[in-house]
Design a binder for these strands. Structure first.
Lengths: 228, 228
DNA sequence: CATCGGTTTAGACTGATGGTCTAAAGCGTC
DNA sequence: GACGCTTTAGACCATCAGTCTAAACCGATG
C-alpha cells in the first residue's frame, strides 16, 4: 500500500512523482514501464521511491486509483437504478456509461494508462506475438459473424469491428471462467448453453420495438480499417 | 518467427524443448516464465535457443500455436453454419464450442498456458494490484446486476459470477474499443447506445420461447463464492 | 547551542532477466 | 585432409525491480 508518508510530501513533489508515473505508465504500459525511469523523471532517489511506495504495482495502483477517483468525481455517483421498470434501468445505466466514457475520453493519459493495464501492458514487443495468435482466430470469427448475418442470426446495426471486439471479449471472459471452474463434465453442456444464449442475446438482431435503440450512425463507421 | 532450422532437429529434441516451454509457460504464465529456465530444462544452450527461436514471444507463439493446432485437430473443423435459419446457426455454433471446451479441459496444461497469456500472466505478484483495482469495481457491478434482477432487467438463470465475468469482459472490450476510436464526441452517444443494447441483449431475461436454452443446472452453482 | 532520535534521502549493490556475440566444434563435400 | 557452412557453447551486456546501509536532515529537549 502507499505509505502514508507520501501524503506528507509537498503538493508539488507529490505531483511530480504522480505525473512522472502517469507519463511512464501511459506511454509504455505497466509491464514495459521502468521504475528507474520514473525515479529519474520525478527527480527523486530510489530510496525515496521505495520509502513512499511498496513497489511498481503499488505505484501503479495509487496513480490509477487517483485517476479513477478524479473521473468519478467529475461524473458523480451512479444514480439510483431502482426507480422503475427494466427500460428505465437500462436508460439510466446507458446515460451514466456515456458520461463516464466522455470523461475518460477527455483524459487521454488516464485512458491510455488503464487500457495499458492488461493490454498494451504487453509492450510493443509482446503485442506482436498476441497479434499473431489472434490473427489466426480473427478471420475465423469474422467469417462466423458474416455467415450469421447472412442467415439473420447476427445483427448488422453495429460496426463489425465492434461486434468482433465484444464477441471476443465475451469469449475470452467465458473461456477463462470455464477454465477456472472445476471440470465437471456433466455441467459443461448447461454452462455452454448459458454462455451461447448470452452471446446470442448480445449479438442477435433485436426486435426494434422491444429495445428502443437508436440506429447506429453510419458516419462513424471509420473504425480503423488499417488495424489489420 | 520460428526458424526453419528447428524443424530439422530430431523429434525427441524438438519435443524436449516444446515440453520444457509448455511446462514453464503453463505454470508461470508468459510474463513470469523464465527463458533461462526453459533453456536449462530443455538441456540446450542459450545460443541454441536463440538459434531456433527469435526470442521468448516467438517460443510462446510457436508452442501455443502447436497446442491449438492439436486441439483443432481433435475437434475437427467448424461445420458449415450456412445451412438454415438463425436457430440452426446458433445450435451448430453452440455444439462446436462445447466440443472445443471439452477438448481444452482435457488438456490442462494447454488451458493453463492460454489462460496465462493475458491474465495469470501477471504472476502472483502483479495480480494483487489488479485485484485491488477490480475490488473497487466488482461490488459496484454486482450491485448493479442485483438491482437489475430486482427490476426484471437482468436474467437470473445464470450464476451471478458468470454474469459478472461476462459483463466485465464485454465492458473491458468496449472500453478498449472506445478508447481506440477517434474521439468523435458526436458519435459517442450512438456507440454507447449500441454497446448498451448489446449488454442488454446478453444480460436481459430472454423470452424462453424465442431462445431454447435449457435451464441452468443449479448443481454447479458452487462457483467459488470465496473468490471475493 | 549541543546533542539526541526519528525521519528522509542517496545511491551502491544484488540477483535476476532477455538478448547479443564471438569463438570453437561438428560435419558434409570436394 | 582441408575448406566452409551449420550448429553449439557460454561469457557478456544492459537493464530491471528491489534491498540495504550510511549519511543528511531536522525538530525537540537539555
Amino acid at each position: 500500500m502507499v505509505r502514508p508518508r507520501f501524503a506528507k510530501l509537498s503538493a508539488t513533489q507529490q505531483q511530480s512523482i504522480v505525473q512522472a508515473a502517469l507519463d511512464e505508465f501511459a506511454t509504455r504500459g505497466f509491464h514495459d514501464a521502468s521504475l528507474n525511469r520514473v525515479i529519474d523523471a520525478a527527480g527523486i532517489s530510489k530510496g525515496s521511491m521505495y520509502y513512499y511506495f511498496d513497489g511498481k504495482e503499488d505505484l501503479y495502483g495509487y496513480v490509477a486509483q487517483l485517476g479513477l477517483a478524479g473521473l468519478f468525481e467529475k461524473v458523480g455517483p451512479l444514480p439510483d437504478l431502482d426507480v422503475g421498470d427494466a427500460d428505465a434501468f437500462w436508460a439510466i445505466l446507458s446515460d451514466y456509461y456515456l458520461r463516464l466514457m466522455r470523461a475518460l475520453v477527455a483524459s487521454p493519459q488516464l485512458a491510455a494508462m488503464l487500457r495499458g493495464w492488461a493490454n498494451a501492458a504487453k509492450g510493443p514487443s509482446a503485442q506482436k506475438a498476441q497479434e499473431d495468435l489472434e490473427q489466426s482466430s480473427l478471420p475465423w470469427i469474422a467469417e462466423v459473424l458474416a455467415t450469421g448475418q447472412r442467415v439473420g442470426a447476427v445483427r448488422d446495426d453495429v460496426p463489425p469491428a465492434l461486434l468482433i471486439a465484444v464477441a471476443m471479449g465475451m469469449g475470452e471472459a467465458m473461456d477463462i471462467w470455464l477454465m477456472s471452474q472445476p471440470d465437471d463434465d456433466a455441467a459443461l453442456p448447461g454452462l455452454i448453453a448459458a454462455l451461447m444464449s448470452m452471446i446470442r442475446g448480445a449479438v442477435a438482431p433485436h426486435d426494434p420495438s422491444s429495445i428502443a435503440s437508436q440506429p447506429f450512425p453510419a458516419s462513424s463507421r471509420t473504425t480503423e480499417p488499417d488495424r489489420r
